[in-house]
Design a protein around this nucleic acid. Structure first.
Lengths: 230, 230
DNA sequence: TGTTTGAATTTTGAATGCAAAATAGGTACC
DNA sequence: GGTACCTATTTTGCATTCAAAATTCAAACA
């Protein structure tokens, strides 16, 4: 029996993902990526057709996403992509700040030399994108760096909560209207983040990240205001 | 039309809670209260009969509770009340600490005199229960105090995340085997919490709460070890 | 005695059906 | 023209149904 397997050590079971799980993932992406506009109603019918599934697994997915805060379920009136209000952002960022500070504190003591080297490389690449004014690649690397810190913290509870909030905020698309002043400040803060991480200064990194998040909060708020104005 | 209502100001719509929502609440209580033992399988059939509903709303509730981490869904094999491992606790407490520290920081600047007075009253009542060795009432008030701080922080995002984690940990029932030494330490920390809150010392309260949570973590870990031993 | 095989039963995953609620559309009335 | 009212349609909440997977359990075999 076992003779069939080449290396009995690393056998991964064939994955059969339930419809429900796939739907949660794909719907979450649609919402976070902004393909479903905040405030828009989401008729079950349409989604069923789009994904070619029946209402049962779809509705299960909607309930889960609602419990994550990405959707609001209006009784008898279906799902709505939840709006990101200024108040939401003002509540979410302090929490993100506390979580990311903790991530930094843990990462500073735990991060491997390999991972640190990767952060360093991504950082300098990111700085380059900043110099060239390439916003999209900059943000990709920025996100990746924060993700690496989160991974280095090696705490899945922390990671899950953080990612949940980050996903909810990401929809704001603050990237588009970040002033060059704020951008410069963000890069300066990232220099500090790298330095503290290399010094393995946990409390210092925590403080820097908290400040970094506070500034990011202002950026997002500006973007949200600009959006509601026009 | 409106003449029927006594005070048109405070009209609350008649609540029609969906089966789904009720089920999520009641099941969560069953799990958190420990009526469903960690590790035990939960056949849908039995729960359907217990609550007298069909499988559809029940399964929706199970998915939500699974996404909260209270249940684990084994593909094609139903739901299991998730076990609380030592590793889980060691991951959850730093996060709880960070969240409660933030709550304290916010509460210190925002708490009303009324709420502060209530905390003070509960605190001294709690100290009395400690003196008398009345564990259960002590814990009730303890929990209520932390809840008041959380409310005073006035941040629903923070409150939701905190309550989610607190619910998951509460199942550990560390109350039963708290040593009198730890209990004394906890009370001392609570004295400090009250003092910092009255001084409206945000950073100080944050630090105290973080330390308080760290100690609580040790208590929970001890309880978990004692449980797995016998 | 202990292990394996295979049908019978149970349980889960997903689709469908049905009644209640909400929405849309159109007519009467002011 | 605008508002109220009533009906037709759509959409939601939940129950039921059906197929596939897992579990049980007894018989066959070593």
């Amino acid at each position: 029996m076992a003779s069939v397997e080449q290396r009995s050590d690393q056998v991964e079971p064939i994955k059969r993902v339930s419809l429900h799980d796939q739907l949660v993932g794909r719907l979450r992406d649609l919402i976070v990526q902004g393909d479903l506009a905040p405030g828009s109603r989401v008729p079950e019918r349409e989604l069923c057709e789009r994904f070619n599934v029946s209402r049962t697994p779809l509705r299960e997915a909607l309930k889960v996403l609602a419990s994550e805060g990405l959707l609001e379920l209006l009784p008898n009136r279906g799902a709505m992509v939840s709006r990101l209000t200024l108040e939401d952002v003002e509540e979410m960022f302090p929490v993100m700040g506390a979580l990311e500070a903790l991530a930094g504190e843990l990462a500073a003591t735990r991060i491997s030399e390999d991972a640190l080297a990767e952060v360093r490389a991504l950082h300098y690449q990111m700085v380059l994108h900043h110099k060239r004014g390439e916003l999209a690649p900059y943000f990709r690397l920025n996100q990746r760096i924060h993700e690496l810190i989160l991974e280095a913290a090696d705490n899945v509870v922390l990671a899950n909560l953080y990612r949940g909030l980050a996903g909810r905020i990401r929809r704001a698309r603050y990237q588009a209207n970040m002033s060059s002043e704020r951008w410069g400040q963000a890069v300066a803060e990232h220099e500090e983040i790298l330095a503290k991480l290399e010094a393995r200064d946990g409390p210092g990194l925590a403080a820097t990240l908290k400040r970094h998040l506070k500034n990011k909060c202002e950026t997002v708020k500006d973007a949200l205001l600009a959006e509601s104005d026009n």
